[in-house]
Design a protein around this nucleic acid. Structure first.
Lengths: 188, 188
DNA sequence: AACTGTGAAATTATTCACAGCT
DNA sequence: AGCTGTGAATAATTTCACAGTT
C-alpha cells in the first residue's frame, strides 16, 4: 500500500487516509462548484462533519469559516495529499517475461506509474534496450538512484532472488515495493 | 459494503473484519498443512499474535492450546465468516441495457453472486424471460421476497427511479444494495 | 449567522501479560 | 513446553462542544 507522506507535522491516523479517498470521490460526483461545508460533505459520504474537519486539518487549514471549503482547492489538495496529482516514477528490476509484459501493458501508465529505469543482473541483458530504456547492471542501482527522487520499485525478478533485490532497494532508499515475483518478501 | 454478520454475540470491531481477509489470504499462500500458531500467522501477515487470537475469538474458540489452529478448519471458518463459502443470492431490478449486460457478464458469477429473480416496472417487459428467468412486476417484489433468504439486490434502474426502488428494497427486507444506477441513493 | 479548527471527553481498538489447557 | 483465550492496561480514534473567524 502507498501512504503518501506530505505534512507529517502531526501523525495522521491511517483511517483518515482511507477516508480522504472517500471525500475525493464524493467531491467528484457532487454538483457543488464553489464552496462545500463539512456538513454537506458529511451528508454525501456518511462520515461525521467534525471528523471531516479534523481529517483535513492534519494537512493544513484550508477552510473558510462561515462558508466552507472551496471545492476546486479542496479537490486539488486531496489529489496532492493522495499522490494522484502526478505520475510516480518507478524503477523496474528484472527484465524477464513478466517485466516486459508490464512494460508493454498500458495499465501501469493508467494507474499513474512511469517506469524510468530498468535493472537486471543478467550480463546478457545489461546494455540492451527495452521500451526505450537501457537495461542497467543491478549492482549499479544504489549509485544510479542516488540523485533521483524515485521512491518506488517494481520487482519482477525470479522468486529466489526477489528477497535479495528487496534488500538492495531498501538500501538504495526505496520506500515502496510492488512485488510481482511469485514469492513473499519482507522489509523493515 | 457487505459486512457478514454471523455471531454478533459481542460487537466485532470493523478493523477485525478487514484483517480476517488478510489472515485468509496468508493461509492460502502458506505451506502449512496441519496446525498454524497465532505467532506464525502474525509473521506471515504483519499483525500482532495477540490481535489475531482476539480477532478469532469473536467468532468462537477454535484453537488448540499448545498446538495452534487447525489450518483446514481455520480456512473453512474464515470462508464462512467472510461469506465466501457460498454464492450470494441476489435479485436484479431493472432489466434494461445495463441489467442485461450484467446478466450475461461472467464477473457477477465469479464474484459469488447468483441472480435468482428479475424485476422491472415496464409492462412490456413483465412476463418476458431473460437469462432463463421470468421478469416480474416490481410491485410484487415485497411479496415475492417474503419467503426467500435473499438479502441483496442489484439496482440497474434509471437514475430517476433508483431511489424509489431502493426504498422498496429496504421495505422488502434487503440488507445490501449494489447500485449500478448512475446516481447516489440513501438508505438507513 | 454560518462555519471552521480544536482541546477535552468519550469511545473504540490494540497490546500486554498471564491463567489455564493439551 | 508451547500455545490459546482473555481481563486489564494502554493507545488510538472519534465525537462533542465551543471559542474564534468571515
Amino acid at each position: 500500500m502507498i501512504e503518501t507522506v506530505l505534512n507529517p507535522q502531526k501523525k495522521v491516523p491511517s483511517p483518515t487516509i482511507a477516508r480522504l479517498f472517500t471525500y475525493y470521490r464524493a467531491l467528484l460526483e457532487s454538483r457543488e462548484t464553489s464552496y462545500i461545508s463539512s456538513e454537506e460533505l458529511a451528508k454525501l459520504t456518511g462520515c461525521m462533519a467534525a471528523q471531516i474537519r479534523k481529517d483535513l486539518t492534519y494537512f493544513g487549514e484550508f477552510g473558510t469559516p462561515g462558508k466552507g471549503y472551496k471545492v476546486e482547492e479542496l479537490s486539488q489538495r486531496l489529489r496532492s495529499i493522495l499522490g494522484i496529482d502526478h505520475d510516480w516514477d518507478v524503477v523496474l528490476i528484472g527484465v524477464g517475461n513478466v517485466g516486459r509484459a508490464l512494460l508493454s501493458y498500458q495499465g501501469l501508465k493508467s494507474q499513474g506509474f512511469k517506469v524510468t529505469q530498468l535493472f537486471d543482473s543478467d550480463p546478457k541483458k545489461i546494455g540492451l534496450s527495452c521500451a526505450g530504456l537501457k537495461i542497467k547492471d543491478i549492482t549499479s542501482m544504489k549509485e544510479e538512484l542516488q540523485n533521483t527522487p524515485v521512491k518506488m520499485a517494481i520487482i519482477t525478478a525470479p522468486a529466489n532472488s526477489a528477497q535479495e533485490v528487496a534488500n538492495m532497494l531498501v538500501e538504495a532508499g526505496i520506500k515502496a515495493i510492488l512485488n510481482f515475483a511469485p514469492t513473499r518478501i519482507f522489509t523493515p
